[in-house]
Amino acid sequence: MAGGNLKNLVIAFLIPLPSILFYISFVRTGADAGPISSWCAAHPLLLANVLFFLNVNVLFWLVGLILSNHWLIDLYWTVIPVMLLHYYRGHPASEANTVRSAVAVALTWVWSVRLTHNYLRREGWELGKREDWRFNEMRSQYGKTWWWMSFFAVYLSQQVFLIGICLPMHAIHSSNQPWGIWDLVAAATCIAGIVIAHFADTQLHKFVSWNQKLKKLGEPTIPTLEDGLWRYSRHPNYLGEQLWWWGLYLFAWNLGQGWMFVGPLVNSLCLGYVTLLVERRMLKQEHRAQAYRMYQKRTSVWIPWFRKAVPEPKEKET
């Protein structure tokens, strides 16, 4: 187990190096070093997509095929936004207000550390222990064609999501407009998202850990988490994550890049679909189906709200 964890740690460390080394070389040589460097300097957003395609879509996919496990993309969902932020910040074409850039960097690192910690905690601090349950379901669905379908379903789709929702990081480093009131609103929204997601994920982790202990003791488990933030929202962790990305978008909107709403919008629509999948999965589990149906009737989906008074179902007479 320890050897497998070390192997996956080495893989996780080495796999982004091609992009990092290329970018460092490009920045050091300068835009006038040749036609390739000149093109890279003139097209920061296109270069980001090229590097993502080659290093993530192609290389991650090949490693996933070799390992028969596409766990890497889950881990790097928490890391790629930080890499993109520093890519835009360090690019020769970068132009940014010092305060706005510093706030974006600080907030993105806090977001990433929190999400990475939650990912590792959920996985029992073992890298590559398992892949996303949705990938498992697609693997069963596509069968023999999964080896090539995974390139599109797991990786190419992630490029659309990640590049899209990180567009505000490009906007922040494309304008030196002075810091203003809307930047404060954006920062406050991001902080609210991080805080809500942290407490929601921590409460969920404690709930899962407690149920695991009850199961080992042979005692009945608790079917549904209905305490803390989960008392007022069925998916407060998703709410927190959405607030983070929409808060980041507000920076771009304030800088006149309103069209960048497409990133968080697509992400929100996808999380809406994931919400449906999660709830269907909960209802398929016999030991919690009835309790979860009641939870659905009482509790708001995303936005926290007061619980509805719904009478408990009467037991059938025997």
Rank of each mutant, 00 (worst) to 15 (best):
G240F: 06
A252Y: 04
S233H: 05
W253Y: 13
G228Q: 02
A252F: 02
L248A: 15
K216P: 00
Y232P: 02
F207T: 03
L225V: 04
R231E: 13
D227I: 03
L255P: 09
G228W: 04
V208F: 07
G247H: 11
S233T: 03
E241Q: 11
Q242F: 02
K216I: 00
E219D: 07
K216M: 06
K216V: 01
W246L: 12
F251Q: 08
H235T: 05
G240R: 00
K215W: 00
L217H: 04
Y249A: 06
W246Y: 14
N237V: 04
E241C: 01
L239I: 03
R231K: 14
T224V: 15
L255R: 15
T221D: 00
N211C: 06
N237Y: 08
P236H: 08
R231C: 10
E226A: 14
W230T: 05
W253K: 09
L243W: 13
L214R: 15
L229K: 06
N254R: 14
D227M: 09
F207A: 03
K213E: 13
Y238C: 02
L217Q: 15
E241S: 09
H235C: 08
S209Q: 12
F207C: 02
Q212Y: 01
L225N: 12
W253L: 15
H235N: 15
W253A: 15
G218M: 06
P236V: 11
W230P: 03
N237E: 10
L225C: 12
G228E: 04
Y232N: 10
L250Q: 06
Q212T: 01
I222F: 02
L229R: 05
G247A: 12
G247E: 08
F207E: 09
L243M: 14
Y232R: 13
L255N: 14
T221L: 04
K215P: 00
S233K: 07
L248V: 14
K216A: 14
S209M: 05
P236D: 12
W244F: 15
L239G: 07
H235D: 02
K213I: 04
I222N: 14
L225E: 07
K216E: 13
K216T: 07
L229Q: 05
N254K: 07
G240W: 05
Y249G: 03
L214Q: 15
K215D: 07
K215V: 00
G247F: 09
P236E: 11
G218C: 03
K216F: 00
E219M: 07
W210S: 13
L229A: 09
T221H: 02
P220I: 08
Y232W: 15
R231H: 12
W253Q: 10
L248R: 05
L225A: 04
Q212R: 14
H235S: 13
P236F: 10
P236C: 07
Y238V: 01
L248G: 09
W246D: 10
L243C: 13
K215E: 13
G240L: 07
R231S: 13
R234C: 03
G228R: 05
L214T: 03
P220Y: 09
R231G: 15
Y238M: 13
L243E: 11
K215R: 13
R234W: 08
W244Q: 05
L225K: 02
T224G: 02
L250C: 12
L250H: 06
P223N: 08
L250E: 02
W245K: 13
T224C: 15
W210M: 11
T224H: 01
W210L: 12
